[in-house]
Structures are given as C-alpha cells and as structure tokens.
Amino acid sequence: MKGHKAITLILMILLCGVLVYVAEDIPDFGDPKAPAIKYVKLFHLEAGASENALNQGRIPETISIALKERKFPLPSRAEKTPGAENDWDVFIPKEEAYYPKEEKFYRIKKEGERLHLYRYAFVVRWIEKGFKETGAPNMVTHGLADYRGYDTLGETVVIFTAGVSVILLLRRRSRL
C-alpha cells in the first residue's frame, strides 16, 4: 500500500508540473482577440510598398509568395476592415460550388513598419454567416447539428452504445 501512495504522489506532481509549466502561454481569460476566438498570427513582413496595393484591393506579391511557401490557400483581394484604421480583410476566391461567394480568410494589420498577417479563427465565420446559411439563430445548435453535424452523429452513437452496453451487462430475461 505504501508503494501505491508513492506512485500517486509522483503522478500528481508530474501532472501538476506539466499543467503549471503550461500556464504561462495559455491565452488570457476573456481576451476577445485570443486565437480561439478571433484570429491566429501567422507571420509578419516588412510593409514597404505593399500598403498601397492593399489599399487598392490587390494582394502584394510578397504576401502571396509567403503564403504559398507555408501551403496556405492563396487570397484574391483585400478590403479595408470597417471600423479599423490600418487593417485589411483578405478574401480567398470561390473554389467550391457550395460557396457562391468568396470567403473572408486572412486579416492584415499594420503595426509600425510591419504588416502582421493573421488568419481568422473559423468561429468568426460561424458567427457572421451561420444564421444566413442555416436559418438557425442559435449558433450552438447550428454548429452542433450542421457545421459539425458528424460529431453530433458520433455523440448520438456514443449514447446509443452506452444504452446497449448497459443492456448487455445488466438486463436478464430479455430477448436482447
């Protein structure tokens, strides 16, 4: 029994250690710009002359090359973000029949002399377009049943599995 306690202690310390070690890099609580909520940073470039191109709605060559190197989808045009001074939303072209329109995908932010390239978290699209595309105002429901409907199918199968498991384990004098 003593060995068991020692193992418990060691495991607890290990788990605690890993979790505390991580704490520093976890995003802040309630941060509206956290990667999971708003966007995740990809890389940054020197601004140079690309700002003008972005203002005209074109995508500068440097950004396209940098995206291509990292295997990201290539953008088609840029647009100024409403309500922000030096920010641009970057769209990707329509590639698939299910998307009649092009998609907002990247965001470019100018800070000092650098262009920071961000990618929108996919929740942003759910929030903006989910109601229009699925007709369900409750985002959790349309996420659950439509965008990630396959997960919910899995969930239903899990509960069904549990039901059948309990039948197998406990039910006697039954035909099943």
Binding site: D151, G154, A162, L169
Partner: peptide, 20 residues
C-alpha cells in the same frame, strides 16, 4: 475532435464487450 468522439465509441463498446 472527431477522432476523440470515435475513440470513445470504440472504447465504450470495448469496455462492455470485455465484461460480457
């Protein structure tokens, strides 16, 4: 995440089948 859900499906059925 889908991987997690399906891992749980086969795990739960395995728990029950082992105990059968």
């Amino acid at each position: 995440f889908n991987m997690f859900v399906f891992i749980e499906i086969f795990s739960i059925s395995a728990y029950a089948l082992i105990a059968a």
